[in-house]
């Protein structure tokens, strides 16, 4: 009677079978199916009118910033590939994002670097000033200020954690020709188009998705795409003229 209740036997009778069932369940086809992903590859094309570059005559701090600044509204490749568009998949949420190192936003020769950046929710943003002049960095969401701070010449970073997804604009009230954009996501399914207008979004579950396409001059559009189970097709998406 006593022998039948030894800890080893209890373990064999109780935990071992449960453990085996658990391990087998990990290898089951249900899990394998959930892990199946594919890579979305595409190209954003634009064949509309291209606005002329904006020329700014610099009145403040021209010795550091230069005398003029040209802002290019739309840049396309030879075959119409739209550069610097932000592509993201809507309706995705990866739960609680992992801790990430800060996104460094530099004021350098009166330009923001990066002037088009991507951040994740809960990621800290660190603003730095590498110039020998005072800068202001005014970052706004659609409705509210995220931060509006002044940075002394060559000053250490001012940090603030980003809490919400969405697009943000970066400006300097002192140097109105400075511009920048940060897009904040709560998932990893996003990309910025390269010099050919191409983008790649890996590890995406197959199926129908709504893509959001943003461009600083052309605005935001949505397109529905279907990602097959295996292999891939190169999607060509035309960005309409505003």
């Amino acid at each position: 009677m006593n022998n039948s209740r030894t800890p080893l036997k209890l373990f064999k009778r109780g935990f071992l079978p449960v453990g085996i069932v658990f391990l087998v369940s990990l290898l089951s086809p249900v899990h394998a199916e959930n892990l199946e992903t594919n890579t979305l590859r595409g190209k954003i094309l634009y064949h509309g009118a291209i606005p002329p570059p904006e020329e700014h005559i610099i009145k403040q701090d021209a010795e550091v910033c230069g005398k003029t600044r040209q802002i290019i509204p739309v840049t396309i490749s030879q075959d119409g590939g739209l550069q610097r568009a932000v592509v993201s998949v809507e309706g995705m949420n990866s739960g609680s994002p992992q801790k990430r190192p800060p996104l460094i936003l530099r004021n350098d020769k009166c330009q923001f670097f990066p002037d088009l950046g991507i951040a994740l929710v809960k990621q800290p943003l660190e603003v730095q000033n590498l110039d020998s002049i005072l800068h202001n960095t005014h970052i706004r969401t659609k409705k509210r200020a995220f931060i509006n701070v002044v940075l002394l010449p060559q000053s250490k970073g001012i940090k603030k954690v980003i809490k919400k997804p969405g697009p943000m604009t970066i400006a300097c009230n002192k140097h109105p020709f400075m511009e920048g954009f940060i897009h904040v996501f709560d998932h990893p399914y996003h990309a910025i188009t390269n010099t050919q207008g191409a983008f790649t979004i890996p590890n995406l579950p197959p199926g129908t998705h709504t893509l959001s396409l943003w461009h600083k001059t052309l605005g935001t559009i949505q397109r529905t795409v279907t990602l097959p189970q295996k292999d891939g097709t190169l999607l060509n998406i035309e960005f309409p003229a505003p």
Binding site: N136, H138, R144, A145, I147, N148, V149, V150, L151, L152, S155, I158, N173
Partner: peptide
């Protein structure tokens, strides 16, 4: 604190 929604920025982390 600055005055949010205006160009008046926060100088909290700027003052030497």
């Amino acid at each position: 604190t600055g005055l949010d929604g205006t160009p008046m920025a926060s100088f909290r982390e700027t003052l030497p």
